[in-house]
Design a protein around this nucleic acid. Sequence first.
DNA 1: ATTATTTTTTAGACTTATCTAAAAATATTT
DNA 2: AAATATTTTTAGATAAGTCTAAAAAATAAT
Lengths: 218, 218
Amino acid sequence: MHSYTEENYLKAIYRLSNKTDKGVSTNSIAERMETKASSVTDMLKKLSEKKLINYKKYQGVTLTKKGKQVAVSIIRKHRLWEYFLVEHLNFNWDQVHPVAEELEHIKSELLIERLDEFLNYPKYDPHGDPIPDKEGNFPIPSRIKLTEMSKGQKSVILGVMENAASFLQYLDKLGLNIGTEVKVVEKHNFDNSIDLLINNKQTVHVSHEVARNIFVSN
Amino acid sequence: MHSYTEENYLKAIYRLSNKTDKGVSTNSIAERMETKASSVTDMLKKLSEKKLINYKKYQGVTLTKKGKQVAVSIIRKHRLWEYFLVEHLNFNWDQVHPVAEELEHIKSELLIERLDEFLNYPKYDPHGDPIPDKEGNFPIPSRIKLTEMSKGQKSVILGVMENAASFLQYLDKLGLNIGTEVKVVEKHNFDNSIDLLINNKQTVHVSHEVARNIFVSN
DNA sequence: ATTATTTTTTAGACTTATCTAAAAATATTT
DNA sequence: AAATATTTTTAGATAAGTCTAAAAAATAAT
């Protein structure tokens, strides 16, 4: 069907598409895939021939319906496996990504349906990212960035934008996890950092950079 | 580390080694891998350079200690995944092989250790094949072929030698599964077929070809 | 022990995905 | 708008794994 590599390109293009409404540039793909622009161009031609992307030279690319379907199905597999690893094999949330990166390419349809059933159709992965269903529909998330909360407001952490292990470990250290209750005690204008009261117990200080990578319930 | 393809060659050589005490021939590998002898030769050179096999031109190959370790670890992963698929995802025993064939190449050490723990350290896969432990040691099997049973003897089915889906489905139809109690009612000399009483209920007739692919407890 | 057959290896070509270096197109600056 | 800089594409090479066709070695047959 599609090669491991093709699937990874489609996934990368999908992710980048969500950040702009224009076409995705060759360089941005190269950067994300940690490869060279010339390699990207070669692959774009191939994906275009397979009708997985819309591609005109120098114009940037968008996914076709078919391409989007493939991308979403890979993301679905990735997140279901992450959920499995954390819930059943006792992985930490900062350990699952590289393993799921491999598991997401296992081909069997039956496997992923049965896994979904076994896990009881989870809606969010361990990082709080939404898991699309079999038809490719995402659960409607009602969440805002932590930076958008106002002073005195209370909320619950739903997920993160950045999945790097180092970031997740830092959050663990601060005591910030999925489900943690937070209240904005103070917002500092000079650097946009925030003082948070967590679970009505201790207070922690988070930088703007950290806060903008955390989603809370709305 | 080792490529998907290298791992498959090592697995094939390991399996073939168990059938002869001489070195494994190029042609036999080619047949098993459904590839051409010339491709096999190329790969043998590569595996030899990596010290995974002992190879001298025209002589046939054997696995080195290192090569055997890799092969056994792949088999371990394959069988643990098969067990998972049948026990937790409700796969039938004739559906698991192709999926496990992919899953066995997932690299994470932690994954397979945790999976083993989650499954409660099973000793046999759904086909009755022994699962080596982390150190590569197989459980000592005490089993004989169904063809070796004598008239009147009672026993329990422990496993099969042939894993083709069509064969497994045929066994299902006959009512023969892992754990099924069988008693040899009659052995027919002219074609070596056997009449079996299963679970003290119905009697079935199995050909020599079928019987020699079934393992029973000793 | 020579010939014939089978097995195995070599040589050269193809495919997929990658790279470097250079050319072409687009964007930015003055 | 001309010059400069950036982005993207092309051309040609490389590595892994495969293939066909032919050569070399080993085995079997007369």
